[in-house]
Design a protein around this nucleic acid. Structure first.
Lengths: 237, 237
DNA sequence: GAGTGGTCTAGACCACATG
DNA sequence: ATGTGGTCTAGACCACTCA
């Protein structure tokens, strides 16, 4: 049986009530004690669910007072997510396409080899893609994946254009998190042609190091994104 | 007495052991049961500490196997932090200075008023600062803070050039988190002069909405940063 | 003073990894 | 078979908020 932990069930239940508006902004949730009774679990289990909601900013806890649904403008899908390119684009878009510009196996330049933790003779797959959103070219992504991580990748068709889905479903590699450096750079002649902008037009340049659950580096990627498609991140104190 | 919770004590203790190398990369930590005995607490308390370390990627847990110190390259100070500008700059720099370009009270433009949740007649403090790092101009920050949030701000000298420290220590406002949109834009003539770059040179443009613990919006800020000072963020699956 | 969330206990059973 | 982390219990005391 696909028995999820109770705190996940409670969490999902509360998320639904909040997003559908059954529990509206600023209203108080039942107390932890009451929720424990409602779901027939102990209070510690309820707290596991509420901890997750608090981390996602769906609720605000006030000691001595209660747990409240966060203000409307403050709630949103979880941010800082590593996911399919489609999810990186702010707002809802349906028409995301992928054009593969290049895929081959080669020895990466030494700086990239170092980031990937590869020896001098280890090879990697280079995958360059152009992503478009609603027929507008949005980003060029240049990814390097060690062959040792995903041996079959160079021969796999990308599922839905998504590298991460392909790694997960065809190569058994689950990407888990990444560090990303974001800066700005002028479009080169080549990028300008792909992205349909003028040479030297400002682009969002990002360098990403992607890891699996154990901390192994599974990808290094550079991307250049048109400024109409900003990156959204959440920061904590 | 400044009695911190035990899980904070344990967490700080383990962080120290990891960062000093007393517990080196890839080594196994004592099991949760052993840690509970060492610190004379229950296992649930140990788990609260380990949960935090796992969130910060300092350790990796493997069910059935143990909890391990994360690989070296994967550890770093916590990212996605909202903090003094000094902390936003990658690497260690000492010489951060602040030049105040403008500070005044006025009715914000309607789009900013909307973000701040202000009515048509509510006023805000506009604060424009130039930040330099090691004598290099690094960023221009244009912040708007509702007068209702920080009535005394317009007359307060900034503590150490830091708006957030000033809000905390002089106005009793603790900023807690922010959403930030990051894109790229060409330097205007004015920005080019302040940041010592050519007109139309690419800059990192960010729009930040800052909140306190209760979710109240306490600041809206736009910033333009030279590309030598990239933003670093961490993403999760 | 009554109710809330924050911390903590001393157990328990389970799924999973390893020898 | 043993030990690990994942989940959960049924309590407890505390600090805090609010009526």
């Amino acid at each position: 049986m696909a028995t999820r932990p109770m705190y996940e069930v409670i969490r999902a239940d509360l998320v639904e009530q909040i997003t559908t508006g059954a529990l509206s902004s600023e209203t108080r949730l039942p107390s932890e004690k009451e929720l424990a009774e409602q779901y027939s679990v102990s209070r510690m289990t309820v707290r596991q669910a509420l901890d997750a909601l608090e981390r996602d900013r769906l609720v605000v806890r006030r000691r001595g007072s209660g747990t409240f649904v966060a203000p409307q403008r403050v709630r949103s899908r979880r941010l800082n997510r590593l996911g399919p390119f489609r999810d990186d684009v702010a707002g809802n878009v349906d028409a995301v396409t992928t054009i593969e510009l290049r895929r081959e196996v080669l020895k990466p330049p030494s700086d990239i080899a170092k980031v990937l933790g590869l020896g001098a003779s280890d090879e990697a797959v280079q995958l360059v893609r152009l992503r478009t959103v609603d027929d507008t070219p949005a980003a060029v992504q240049d990814s390097w994946i060690p062959c040792a991580v995903a041996p079959g990748l160079v021969r796999s068709n990308l599922i839905d254009g998504s590298l991460y889905r392909t790694l997960a479903e065809r190569c058994g590699v689950a990407v888990s998190w990444a560090d990303q450096e974001i800066t700005a750079s002028p479009a080169t002649k080549e990028l300008a042609r792909w992205l349909d902008v003028r040479v030297n037009a400002p682009l969002i340049e990002a360098h990403r190091t992607t890891h699996d659950e154990a901390g192994r580096t599974v990808e290094y990627a550079c991307s250049w994104t048109r400024p109409e498609f900003p990156f959204v991140v959440r920061l904590d104190a």
